[in-house]
Structures are given as structure tokens and as C-alpha cells.
Design a protein around this nucleic acid. Structure first.
Length: 265
DNA sequence: AAGATAGGCAACCGCCCGTTT
DNA sequence: AAAACGGGCGGTTGCCTATCT
């Protein structure tokens, strides 16, 4: 017996989400939390596949998402992690708080790939293009570290933000990111110096970068997310009334995307 | 100004895996 | 033990916008 389709294809809407649908989905999840995705569309009054709802929420509507281009240092981290993990976008995304696997995958395919090719590095092997592929499968032997990238690059890569002379993608690095930048490089240093590399990467331990993000971004106006609320935790924070009423900037910024009026603000 | 082309990204598809029955 | 289910993942598609001719 085959698997049931994830939803009844008949009468299910596809394509871009409308603001009205977004609003319904947001309202439902804020009211009821994330229940089973299959039942959600019906309960929320959406003519969408549950899977589509999940994707829309996780990739676009989730309140803890960062928006905008990846910073130079986030990009660097993606490259490092890709060299180690390959196309494990969700694993890579888990090391970049506020970023989704889809976003990173898209950014890789549209930006990073080209940049690496431009500086003569094969984006798949992370080896110089004119060099024979290394047959050694041990990821620790991959010849890629931030300095290597700089060596191959025609433009000078500066590790510390604020003084970066990199291309457009790094020109928007904020002060907020700069503390994270240094910490990310500490993380990278650790990765390259640690014999227990993979046990570290695959551990559940919160990364320095994550901690930094949590400290510097979630603390505005009090507690945005409530760890005491069931369902809220390290994996998935939820909105708390305190965060909303406390004029949390990210909430407001986020609402602007859909029109604040839609939320009755 | 208008059509052609390329780039970027949101969304979909199908497969896989872990859990439940 | 095996089927059913729910959710996650990576690859791909297709639409929209910007740029070029």
C-alpha cells in the first residue's frame, strides 16, 4: 500500500502566498502553536497543503528569522561549514541563527558559488580549480580556511568587521554582527584546530554564534521569547506578549513586511 | 520604449527517516 | 514486523525583477 499524499490535491491552492493567507497562518500559530501540519490548513481556514504551510512558516513567517543578505562573516561561515558538511543545508542553517536552510541554499547557489569560482575555487570540492581533487575523504584534510580564501581572492578579506574592504555583500555588516563575527572566527578556529571536529559540529551544544545572537538581538525590550511556555525552547521560540508590547523592533520590522494594520496595530 | 536575457528567490516536489499504531 | 503517518531535507522549478540590447 502506497503512502497517502500529504494532502488532498484537489482544491488545494498553490503558488505565492497572499497577505491574507499569511495572516491566517500567523494568527493560527500564534493562537494555537504548531500542531500537526496536515490538520492545520483546515483548522486555520486555508486552502493549502499542510506541507506548504510548514514551509511558508519556517522559511518566511517565523518571527525569529533574520532578513536580508547574509553578512560577509555569515557567508564565510557557510563556506566553512559547506566544506565540512557538503550540501547539508539544514545542518549549516542550524549554525546560523535566524537563517533557514532554504535561504542558505539559495544564497549558496546564487552568490557564493559564483564568488568561489571567480577566485578559482571549486565550490563542490573547495579545492583550487587547477588542482587535482584530493582523494582523501577525511574532511579535516580539506584545504580551506579563511586565510586560504583570502590567498585565492583578488580582493583583500578582512576578518574584523568595520574595516572590511570586501565587496557589496560585506559592506552592510552591522555592529550587531561584528561581535558575532569575531565569535564566529573563534568558532572557525576551533573547528580547524579541534581533533574532535565532527563531535563538536554534530553536538547539540549551542554555538557561540547562537549565544551571541540570542544575547544581542533578543534582549531588546525584555523577553521576546518565553522559555517557560510549553513548546517554546531552544529549537523554536515563540512570540510572547511582553515582546510585542515591549515594542520589540524585530516584531515591528517584521510586521512592516505585511502591513502593520493587518495585525491590528 | 520595448523585447530579450539573466539573476534571485519563494515555493513545490519527491524522497527519506523516525515514530506510532 | 510492517504499514501508516508526520515531518524534514535537498533538488528543482517557475515567477518576478533588473539589466542589457
Amino acid at each position: 500500500m502506497g503512502r497517502q499524499p500529504c494532502c488532498d490535491k484537489l482544491g488545494v491552492k498553490k503558488g505565492p502566498w497572499t497577505a491574507e493567507e499569511d495572516k491566517k497562518l500567523i494568527n493560527f500559530i500564534l493562537t494555537n502553536g504548531q500542531c500537526c501540519w496536515r490538520a492545520l490548513p483546515k483548522l486555520a481556514g486555508l486552502r493549502r497543503c499542510g506541507k506548504s504551510c510548514r514551509l511558508r512558516w519556517t522559511n518566511y513567517l517565523r518571527p525569529d528569522l533574520k532578513r536580508g543578505l547574509l553578512s560577509h562573516d555569515e557567508e564565510q561561515l557557510v563556506i566553512e561549514l559547506h566544506a565540512l558538511l557538503g550540501n547539508k543545508w539544514s545542518k549549516i542553517a542550524s549554525r546560523l541563527p535566524g537563517r533557514t536552510d532554504n535561504e542558505i541554499k539559495n544564497h549558496w547557489n546564487t552568490h557564493i558559488k559564483k564568488k568561489l569560482l571567480k577566485i578559482g575555487i571549486d565550490p563542490m570540492t573547495h579545492q583550487p580549480l587547477n588542482q587535482e581533487p584530493n582523494n582523501n575523504d577525511n574532511p579535516k584534510n580539506i584545504s580551506l580556511n579563511p586565510d586560504d580564501i583570502s590567498k585565492h581572492s583578488n580582493t583583500k578579506t578582512v576578518k574584523t568587521s568595520g574595516t572590511s574592504t570586501e565587496d557589496e555583500s560585506s559592506s552592510t555588516v552591522t555592529d550587531q554582527n561584528s561581535s558575532m563575527d569575531n565569535e564566529n572566527h573563534l568558532l572557525i578556529d576551533k573547528i580547524y584546530n579541534d581533533d574532535d571536529l565532527f563531535s563538536y559540529l554534530w553536538s547539540d551544544q549551542t554555538t557561540i554564534a547562537e549565544a551571541s545572537w540570542s544575547d544581542s538581538n533578543y534582549g531588546v525590550g525584555g523577553t521576546l521569547y518565553d522559555d517557560n511556555v510549553p513548546g517554546a525552547g531552544a529549537d523554536f521560540p515563540i512570540w510572547s506578549p511582553e515582546g510585542i508590547n515591549g515594542n520589540d523592533w524585530r516584531y515591528l520590522d517584521y510586521c512592516e513586511d505585511f502591513g502593520v494594520h493587518d495585525f491590528g496595530l
